[in-house]
Amino acid sequence: MLRVENLCTHFHSKGKTIRAVDGVSLSVDRGEILGLVGESGCGKSTLSRTIMQLIPPTSGKIFLEDRDLSGLTPKEIRRERLNFQMVFQDPYASLNPRMTVFSALAEALRRRHPNLAKDDLSREVGTLMEKVGLAARFMKKYPHEFSGGQRQRIAIARALAPEPRLIIADEPVSALDVSIQSQIINLLMNLVRELDLTMLFISHDLSVVHYIADRIAVMQQGRLVEIGSADQVMHEPEHDYTKTLLEAIPRVAEHI
C-alpha cells in the first residue's frame, strides 16, 4: 500500500544541516495500522508531512499502491492527495474557524465528487457526521462551538470525506483527555476496519500505540531503530533505545 524507500528530509538553517528524516525505509500493508513512536524532535512529524507531500523530500522515494509520488507534477500531486489524508494533533488548530462543519466537509467531499448536487451534499455530510459519532443537526455550527473531542471527530470526518485509502494520524489523541482519548481511539480503529483503510499512527505514547497498532516502528534522531510486531516491540524490544522508552513509561499496573 505505502512504501517509503530511503527517505531523507534535510533542512538548512544558519549554515547547519538538520537531518530531520535520515534514510527511512518502511512499508505499510493494506488494512494495516503501523504505529510510529518517538520522542519530540525525532523526526516523526517531518516524516509524516514528507509522505503527505507537504514538505519536499531531499532524496528517496514514496510509493502509494506502487505509484511513485516523487515523479508527479504539482497538479497530479493535488489529485493524488485525495488518496491519503491526515488527522492532526491539535483539533483547535486543524479546523478553519470561519467555516461551518457543513462547508468544511462539503469542500472535502467535492474534491472527490465535484458534481454533487446540493441536496446530495447535505445527505453526504450528514452521513459522514453520523459515521464519526456526531449528530447531523450540528452541521451548521462552527468549530468553536464544539469540544476538543468533537472537533477531532470533525477533523476525522474531513479526512474521510475524499474517500482516502491511507490515513496518517499525527498524535491524534495526545491533546485530548483520557476519557475522550479512548472514544477517539475506538472510533479510529472501527473506521479502519469498516472502511478497509490503512493507517500510519504517530504518537509519543507507546501504550496507546501498542494498543492500536499491528506493527510498531521506533524512530530516534531521524532514523528507524526498530520495527516489529506490536507485541514484540512492547515485550521483547531489541534496540536499547526502545528499552529506555519502555522503562520510562509510568505504569499504573504496579499497584494492581
Binding site: 507537504l54 491526515m86 469542500e107
Partner: peptide
Amino acid sequence: EFVEAALSLGLHRVTIIFRYLIPN
C-alpha cells in the same frame, strides 16, 4: 494545521488564500 489540511485536500493556492487566510 488547518492550512496543511487544506493543502492535503489538494485545494488551489488561491482558494486557500481567499477561504482560509484572508477571513482569518
